[in-house]
Computed example of a mutant assay.
Amino acid sequence: MSNMKPALPQCAPMARIQNILSGKWKIMILWYIAEYEVQRFGELRRRLGDITQSTLTKQLRELEQDGFVSRYVYQEVPPKVEYSLTELGKRFIPILQQMMLWSEKNLSPKNL
């Protein structure tokens, strides 16, 4: 017999947001789009550094499917694609800001 307690119903909202933000780069992707309002794919990739093109593509698509990011494709050659936050994504900005403040106050650079 296990001593584990069943999951609490009030944890479901935390599970939903964890599922959305579970990608290694998603918080940073949201942060840069929020800071610059509009980001092109190449700009995001340069800002993030070590991310691969396929990982960035996958995580942007997931954020788009989850309603945090919108994608706009210009009909030109070569194609130009821009990403911005949706209204849902914009409502997440205060959370990102609080995460940044908490990190500045509680985590030293050696924790990275």
Rank of each mutant, 00 (worst) to 15 (best):
E43M: 04
F68V: 03
N3T: 12
T57S: 14
S108P: 06
A15Y: 02
L63E: 04
P78D: 03
R61G: 07
A7K: 09
T55Q: 11
I51Q: 08
S70D: 14
L88H: 15
E64A: 08
V77M: 07
R16A: 14
E37V: 12
G49F: 05
E35I: 06
V77F: 12
K5H: 08
Y83H: 08
T55P: 04
Q97A: 02
P13D: 04
L63K: 10
L48T: 00
Q39K: 10
F68Q: 05
E76V: 06
I29A: 06
V81R: 11
N111H: 09
R71K: 10
F92L: 11
L63D: 01
L101N: 13
C11V: 14
K58A: 14
N111D: 05
P78S: 09
Q97M: 06
L56R: 01
L107N: 05
L30A: 06
S103E: 01
M28S: 03
K24N: 10
K24V: 14
L85T: 05
T55E: 14
K105Y: 13
E87G: 10
L30N: 07
R91N: 14
E104T: 08
L44I: 02
T57C: 10
M99N: 02
W31H: 05
P109C: 14
P13E: 00
K105H: 08
P94Q: 07
M99C: 07
S84L: 04
C11Q: 15
Y32F: 14
L21C: 00
M14C: 09
I93N: 01
G67P: 03
I93E: 04
V77Q: 11
V38G: 01
E62M: 07
Q59T: 02
M1S: 15
I93L: 01
Q65H: 06
K24P: 13
S70F: 06
I33F: 00
S2N: 04
K5M: 15
E43F: 07
S2Y: 02
E62R: 10
P78Y: 01
V81A: 05
A12W: 08
K110R: 14
D50R: 11
V77K: 14
S84C: 09
L30D: 14
